[in-house]
């Protein structure tokens, strides 16, 4: 019972240590917290993990004209892979953040010696990790049951591209999660996710769109992301405005996320 004596007094004499623990150490601690919480209730993520793979299995694999053509098959896998990352980000950052804010543990974490940076980075790391997990079944089905194929360079690029796909949608998720209660956030995430995915050409390729939808689609972040992913994986060039459109949305989502985070601080309890 007296083993702390020396430490408590020693730190009292030497004055206060000026620095918090290293940024990445704290970020990893918080990533680990989020990961454990998610993995302990696997049912919460299983649907999210399996849905894109099941969509591939039921809607693409039986259509041999698509599945046996390396180009079309790769595009189909890329689209559903993009959807997997997008839905993981929106759910884990939108619904997840809103849920955490409702827990009394969240204000407690804010009293620990770690700023918002490491905590947010931990959340991002956790979101990225689950994005890769969500991607795995889609890629596996695509690799085993269709003619989709990537060379090793494309594999490497795709692994990095996941980060680029994740960022705008995790920012959108944060904007929703810090703005809304958890019940509202789940509804809003679903209301945003599916129209955005459909109109972005993640379920049906944009070639199947009517002219007006194709034009409208090109202004959406999901379409911009989809075309960039398809460019990297299947070699079909994206429309020229894809990157500017994506960057524009990313900037907007970032602004909304920061505003939502700021307005959240210290609002709920006395």
């Amino acid at each position: 019972m007296t083993t702390t004596t020396t430490a408590a007094r020693a730190s009292a004499r030497t004055g206060r240590p000026a620095r918090t623990q290293p940024f990445w150490r704290l970020a990893l601690l918080h990533a680990r917290l989020g990961f454990l919480e998610t993995v302990r209730i696997p049912i919460a993520v299983i649907g999210n993990l399996l849905f894109p793979a099941l969509a591939l299995l039921f809607f693409v694999v039986p259509q041999r004209a698509v599945a046996d053509d390396p180009g079309s098959a790769t595009v189909a896998v890329a689209q559903l892979g993009t959807f997997a990352v997008m839905s993981t980000c929106l759910f884990s950052f939108g619904a997840g953040v809103a849920e955490d804010r409702a827990q009394p543990f969240d204000p407690y974490l804010r009293t620990l010696p770690a700023g918002p940076g490491p905590r947010l980075t931990g959340r991002v790391l956790n979101g990225l990790l689950w994005s890769y997990f969500a991607l795995a079944p889609v890629v596996l089905v695509g690799w085993l049951l269709t003619a989709a194929a990537l060379d090793w360079l494309q594999v490497g690029q795709s692994v990095l591209l996941v980060v680029g796909v994740a960022v705008p949608f995790l920012l959108l998720g944060l904007a929703i999660g810090y703005r809304m209660s958890s019940k509202a956030a789940i509804a809003v995430v679903q209301a945003v996710l599916f129209p955005l995915a459909f109109a972005g050409g993640l379920f049906l390729p944009p070639e199947a769109f009517p002219q007006w939808l194709d034009v409208f689609s090109k202004a959406l972040p999901s379409r911009a992301v989809r075309d960039l992913v398809v460019q990297v994986t299947a070699g079909v060039d994206a429309y020229p405005l894809a990157l500017p459109v994506l960057l524009g949305w990313t900037a907007l989502f970032a602004t909304l996320a920061v505003l939502a985070y700021r307005s959240d601080e210290g609002r709920r309890f006395r």
Partner: peptide, 15 residues
Amino acid sequence: ASARLTLGTTPQETG
């Protein structure tokens, strides 16, 4: 954050 290195608190209620 660094000012809180010497601070210990408890979660509210049993959160």
